[in-house]
Design a protein around this nucleic acid. Sequence first.
DNA 1: CTGAAAGCGCTTACAG
DNA 2: CTGAAAGCGCTTACAG
Lengths: 342, 342
Amino acid sequence: MTKTSNGKSRASGRVTLAEVAAHAGVATMTASRAISQPDMVSAALRARVEQAVAELAYVPNRAARALASAHSNVIVVLVPSLSNAVFTAVLAGIQDALDADNYQILIGNTRYSDAEEEKLLGIYLQSNPDGILLSGLSHSARVRQMLATSQVPVVSMMDLASEPAQLSVGFSQQQAGHTMTQYLIDKGHRRIAFLGAQRDERTLKRAEGYRAAMAAAGLADPRLELMVDDPSTIALGADLLGRMLASVPDCDAIFCCNDDLAHGAIYQCQRRGIAVPRQLAICGFNDLPASAWMNPSVTTIGTPRYRIGFEAATLLRAVIKGDTPAATRIDLGFTLMARESA
Amino acid sequence: MTKTSNGKSRASGRVTLAEVAAHAGVATMTASRAISQPDMVSAALRARVEQAVAELAYVPNRAARALASAHSNVIVVLVPSLSNAVFTAVLAGIQDALDADNYQILIGNTRYSDAEEEKLLGIYLQSNPDGILLSGLSHSARVRQMLATSQVPVVSMMDLASEPAQLSVGFSQQQAGHTMTQYLIDKGHRRIAFLGAQRDERTLKRAEGYRAAMAAAGLADPRLELMVDDPSTIALGADLLGRMLASVPDCDAIFCCNDDLAHGAIYQCQRRGIAVPRQLAICGFNDLPASAWMNPSVTTIGTPRYRIGFEAATLLRAVIKGDTPAATRIDLGFTLMARESA
DNA sequence: CTGAAAGCGCTTACAG
DNA sequence: CTGAAAGCGCTTACAG
């Protein structure tokens, strides 16, 4: 199997293109073309090479190809979480958009940490990626500098960039936060609390939207805001609900920064015998699958996460291929899902 | 910035090790050592190289390193789903286990498809991975052959292999299915249905366990089994519950092959006014976070998914480093979580 | 501890 | 359409 030619070789033992070429009776470069640019080779030679590939079970060496061609065919995707269904949907969209091309997708989970993002980016940049898909708009100075010196095309996902030079696909997190809050105000609620977790960029922007709507309605009260660093979980939602009710007993509605928190808050209300929405209205954000099925069903903001991934990947691919995109800032919008809980 | 030497160069324009070496006034190979094997270089030279690296913002070319060293430092992980919280937990365990080493983790989502698994494996094998982490024990003939010819070490996750030569980390899916069924039988249920989705390997084995327990108790009835190909979702759980109740009205307990289905079944009962567990007992599998919080809370099987990922990656790393593992088959067990719903 | 040179397995202008 | 040769950016026995 291992046909290393000379004794002192460091060869990998795997079948090489040269062996395939020899087997097919053509030059190495012809074998290369038959595989990578089949149209540039005559049908006869192509068939011989293909047969040799099959007979020798040839597997191309991606490192050698990347080195020789200065093209990695790698696309890096950095998401802050894999346990959050929002980002797995984004990934599914990316996968589908890139499926046809021979891209290798490098998925990095930054765990909502700047340090981790820097580390992962540093490692992934070693692979000389053709493009990068990032979550969110705000990144550490170090990350911004690494990106700048690398010269690799970047598309930001989830939110909309303010500078048109920055490619972004998403929707206005702030506006969505405002819309949900206004909905609660229009329903007649006055003591509307905001429950936030993770304190990430998007939570902060949703809170800004909430704050703007409350202020405009003359309902602002800092005691109505409860924001913690912990990751969003159902358990945290249950906990935060208790804390809010303890500090603001006359609270009549709760806007959770995401559905996990809302679910926990609702389950907690059920255990305490608090009727939702009659005694307390509760709404979330993202429209996770359970939100439509729970009892009461959960009022929330539907977000186009799959499409964000799909469109961002499509945009990135266009830029990599040298196209000048028609739009550099793609707003996919959001949908208020008015259901039973608020 | 781009210091390509000769006119017709295909250089990438990035800073190279040779430039770093020149900047530091050492030979290229010394610069290489200073970076990869710092202990083999004197402190003085090491410092000069490190400074040159910093000043030039040098980023190593992973492809070149892989090609020259015949070592990719890549570990491939294939999971059937990223939207399933079980596998994202497995991934978290893998990440944590491999964090210290400089491994690049290639995550592939096979979407429960043999064809997709073959395709992904083919692409990833081009990167000459040091090791592979696979989900499940049963794979297509093509996959098994690719694995065999590649000679890359493989560890299987989730279930336990029957042949000791095959490295595996998980628990007995069949036994877990049996345990849950026996629990329901012991509680006095007689018409216990099994709801299955995806028809994947693990669902099938849980069903086997169910079948064995039912047969042993003299309760077997093929009409009590409902298995479909569709992916597991809450909506499907709601749907399957309706279908089962329509075909077997005297059904008194339902064993769902996973928690998503169980949640959907319970929500559907709530909408139909069926009391759980009084009129109908319902249990799931995997113990997703919501199961402890729902009302009623969900009886289910707790599975050590994070630890499966962690231990599997640890085992793989040991094998890659040439160690002979003490155990080739690591049983991490499971836990029956008896709660309100059954 | 340090270095000169060969080699890893591909691709790519350039000829023919 | 096909091929000889150089080169991509590293690492590694082998010497000194």
